[in-house]
Every structure is written in structure tokens, then in C-alpha cells.
């Protein structure tokens, strides 16, 4: 099965890096689309279905937390698993994101193996990734 993936990050260099990393990780993709902030992501979500969203938190215009809140309140969009890829290290903030329904969390910097593992766990095996019980 091939996947439609949405990557949300304000940094062009990170968007490019995640795109390359998905390719390097050998993830079978049909389409990878990119958004610079939460609002752009929501605009793309109106027109497209995605199998997974990989999103940063700290972004201008609309940050990742605001975007995730909106998605979590929508009956259709809430079905799309969200994986946060961020520099965020606060356990309080990660718990808040977990409570909003994110399915995986990767702390930057990341490796191709981490991207492959998180997509395998969350999308293929329908499990969570790196959201320990201690949270």
C-alpha cells in the first residue's frame, strides 16, 4: 500500500529534509505534500485525504498545537494520525499533545530510521510511537 503524507513545517530546509528522509526510509508513498504552517495544512486538508500528518509545533501564522486542536474537533480529520516532529522537549507539552490525540512524537534531530519506525508503528501497525505511559 502506498501512502499520502502531509508534512507541516515552517522551515524549507526541514520540509526538504523530511521529504528526502521519507524517500530514504523506503516508505511507499503516493503523494507527499508540504505546508508551511497549520493554516496551510488545514487548507490542504480541505481538498485532500492523507494517511498521516507529520507536523512541527513552533510555526508562524498557525502553530502546530492550534492546528491539532482544530483537527481533533473535526469528525473526519480526527481519523488522520498525527505525528509531531519538534524540538519540543517539555514532558508537560508532550502530555498536552498526547491528550489532543497525537499518535507519535519524534524529537529533532531525527534519522531516516526514526521516520520509518514511526510511520510503520503508527500507520501500518496502528500503534503509538514514543508516547510513553509515564506521560
Amino acid at each position: 500500500m502506498s501512502y499520502n503524507i502531509l508534512v507541516v513545517d515552517d522551515s524549507a530546509i526541514v520540509r526538504s529534509l523530511i521529504g528526502k528522509t521519507i524517500e530514504l526510509a523506503g516508505v511507499d508513498t503516493e503523494n507527499v505534500l508540504f505546508a508551511k504552517n497549520g493554516q496551510e495544512a488545514l487548507d490542504l486538508l480541505k481538498e485532500n485525504w492523507f494517511d498521516v500528518i507529520l507536523s512541527d509545533i513552533n510555526m508562524p501564522v498557525m502553530n502546530g498545537v492550534e492546528m491539532i486542536k482544530i483537527i481533533s474537533e473535526d469528525d473526519i480529520m480526527r481519523e488522520i494520525p498525527i505525528i509531531v516532529i519538534s524540538t519540543e522537549g517539555s514532558t508537560t507539552r508532550i502530555k498536552e499533545l498526547k491528550d489532543l490525540g497525537i499518535r507519535g512524537y519524534i524529537r529533532k534531530p531525527f534519522t531516516p530510521e526514526m521516520i520509518k519506525d514511526v510511520i510503520t508503528k503508527v500507520v501500518i501497525e496502528d500503534k503509538t510511537y514514543n508516547l510513553g505511559e509515564e506521560l
Binding site: 515552517d10 522551515s11 530546509i13 526541514v14 513552533n58 510555526m59 508562524p60 519538534s86 524540538t87 519540543e88 522537549g89 517539555s90 514532558t91 508537560t92 507539552r93 524529537r107 529533532k108 534531530p109
Partner: peptide, 26 residues
């Protein structure tokens, strides 16, 4: 900018309690 973003996140949780929440600018 991205290098700094990662450094800032790692630095704050290294020198401060991991439970504290900081909001970072872009």
C-alpha cells in the same frame, strides 16, 4: 535558524526541569 531551533529546545530541557513549558519564537 533550524540548527538554533534544535539547540534551543535541547538546551532548555538540559538546564531546566523537563516539566517546564517554554514557548519559543520562530
Amino acid at each position: 535558524g533550524e540548527l538554533l531551533n534544535v539547540v534551543c529546545g535541547q538546551f532548555l530541557t538540559t538546564v531546566e526541569d523537563e516539566k517546564l513549558v517554554f514557548d519559543l519564537s520562530v
